[in-house]
């Protein structure tokens, strides 16, 4: 059994439909076996079309800023250079999911809401969403553990942006509130 139930969501960008209609919950699971049964039967992120997302969130939290668990939160963002899609994307997304379902963030684990992988032509992104952007100790602990679990270089940095800041920036990236 897992600590909590999780839901996998899939987003496919079809411009004729509203954003929310393009977001579908695939399934829920609450055991390690059911996680692997799901993982072994869906496409890897690197095989998805540009414009698609997967999101894995605690059951009951929708993968959008507006959800009450997300609206005060933010995300640790890992931006991948285009050439990394074939090298690192699938492993980084799997390790992100294993951190989530294994509750790898210690006492701050409940502050982790979920994660999203965006497949984009200009560069893929993986983001870990947390509940309270102002909880510095929690956000920093989660960021340090996450960076280590992904095996990112000491020289690399990842930034944390509050959703409230991201939501008001349509094109350029929101400022980093924290960096590890």
């Amino acid at each position: 059994p897992l600590m909590t139930s999780w839901a996998l969501w899939f987003f496919k960008n079809e411009r004729s439909r509203a954003w929310r209609e393009n977001l579908q919950m695939v399934t829920r699971f609450d055991t390690v076996e059911d996680f692997w049964a799901l993982y072994n039967n869906i496409k890897l992120p690197s095989k998805l079309s540009p414009g698609c997302d997967y999101a894995l969130f605690r059951d009951g939290i929708e993968p959008m800023w507006e959800d009450s668990s997300n609206k005060r939160g933010g995300r640790w963002l890992v931006s991948l250079a285009k050439q990394l899609r074939h090298l690192d994307l699938d492993r980084l997304w799997l390790d992100t999911m294993l951190c989530l379902i294994g509750e790898g963030f210690g006492d701050y684990g409940p502050d982790v809401c979920g994660a999203v992988v965006n497949i984009r032509t200009k560069g893929d992104k993986i983001a870990l969403w947390t509940r309270e952007a102002d909880s510095q100790a929690s956000v920093m602990h989660i960021g340090r553990v996450y960076k280590e679990r992904l095996g990112l270089s000491m020289k690399a940095t990842i930034g944390y942006q509050a959703h409230a800041d991201t939501a008001t920036k349509s094109n350029s990236l929101a400022r980093n509130k924290f960096v590890v």
Partner: peptide, 18 residues
């Protein structure tokens, strides 16, 4: 309550178990 925590090694081993 009790926290259920699994490390990467355990989770990966579960993938391959029958």
């Amino acid at each position: 309550g009790t926290r259920i925590i699994y490390d990467r090694k355990f989770l990966m081993e579960c993938r391959n178990s029958p």
